[in-house]
């Protein structure tokens, strides 16, 4: 784990801290609920939870502006919630219902929101990296000043297409932030067993892309790094790499027995490095809010998540005709 960057309490407002707390907690509670629904058979197939990594996406989103774009892998629920997508619509997609973001046709791994500039949800490891670079290509082409965030894992960072994308992103100065969520495992493979050099952020060097490691259990550090990266992109200086050192508490997906690491390892992270607990302490120690205030937030979030789950259960299955829709765009309306 990278050394914890100092959290300068002085310039963080109570408002911002509670916002982070709320956003991260929403992701965690949402994922816990999704795990529960999976266990009840209401969610099928693969379901990859984001628990433990909440500070990554919340910190990055804090540096995003209206119109910026994001794209990620199948471990995507947190990203959707953090960019403002409706928890009920996300949960209903997990249950495969008509009220889901993809009308039930995409599922956990394949969800999109044009409105929120969320470009998915991709099931093929590494594929989203050139795609995210392409989003940035379009932005530069259109001259709209937008930045794209392409998230991918430590495992994905070994895919060849990642480096093809790096080269072109640098060659063409594309405004893309490559956000590597290094949670130290790709399924059952610890990073050191798959990767010749551990510091993925240095891999941009050959292409002239600046990169830095970031403590992903500290949302303020993530935000600070993201701001720097975004400023670099918006200034027209091309791509930027952030390797965010984080940790997933749960198995790779719901069906992972997780024999490749010890319970103690997970327990230690949870107890000593938990990102939500960290913000909670900052809030309480800095007297930005009281225990009571935080309890109220907890309750709020529980409500939101329960409502989302209710919606996801009650929303009907898609109409059978939907099997045959959306295969081709209609030329007349395109």
């Amino acid at each position: 784990m990278a050394a914890r960057k100092s959290t300068k309490k002085s310039n963080v407002s109570a408002e911002e801290l509670t916002k982070f707390y709320r956003e991260m907690l929403l992701i965690r509670r949402f994922e816990e609920k999704a795990g529960q629904l999976y266990g009840m058979g209401l969610i099928g197939g693969f379901c990859h939870l984001y628990i433990g990594q909440e500070a990554v996406v919340v910190g990055i989103e804090a540096a995003a502006e209206e119109g910026d774009k994001r794209i990620t892998s199948y471990r995507d629920h947190g990203h959707m919630l953090a960019c403002g997508m409706d928890p009920a619509g996300v949960m209903a997609e997990l249950t495969g219902r008509a009220g889901g973001y993809s009308a039930g046709k995409g599922g956990s791994m394949h969800m999109f929101s044009k409105e929120k500039n969320f470009y998915g949800g991709h099931g093929i490891v590494g594929a989203q990296v050139p795609l995210g670079t392409g989003l940035a290509f379009a932005d530069k082409y259109l001259g709209n000043g937008r930045v794209s965030f392409a998230y991918f894992g430590d495992g994905a960072s070994n895919q060849g297409q990642v480096y093809e994308a790096f080269n072109m992103a640098a060659l063409w100065d594309l405004p893309v932030v490559f956000v590597i969520e290094n949670n130290q495992y790709a399924m059952g493979t610890a990073q050191k067993r798959s990767t010749s050099t551990p510091d993925i952020y240095t891999r941009g060097k050959a292409f002239g892309i600046p990169g830095e490691p970031v403590d992903g259990m500290d949302v303020l550090a993530v935000k600070a790094a993201a701001q720097k990266a975004v400023a670099h992109c918006r200034a027209g200086k091309g791509p930027y790499i952030l390797e965010i050192k984080t940790y997933r508490y749960r198995g790779h997906s719901m069906s992972d027995p997780a024999k490749y690491r010890t319970r103690e390892e997970v327990q230690k992270m949870r107890e000593e490095r938990d990102a939500i607990e960290h913000v909670r302490q900052l809030i309480l120690v800095g007297k930005h809010a009281t225990e009571e205030d935080l309890k109220a937030i907890d309750k709020d979030i529980k409500d939101v998540v329960n409502k989302a789950a209710e919606f996801a259960k009650e929303s009907p299955e898609p109409a059978l005709e939907e099997l045959w829709t959306d295969i081709y765009a209609d030329a007349a309306t395109a």
Binding site: E93, K105, G107, S108, E317, P318, L320, E322, L323, I327
Partner: peptide, 16 residues
């Protein structure tokens, strides 16, 4: 199989 990408929803997958 049907001439569509595989849908996720349980009822549609069954049809596909």
């Amino acid at each position: 199989g049907k001439d569509v990408p595989m849908p996720y929803a349980a009822n549609l997958e069954k049809l596909a």
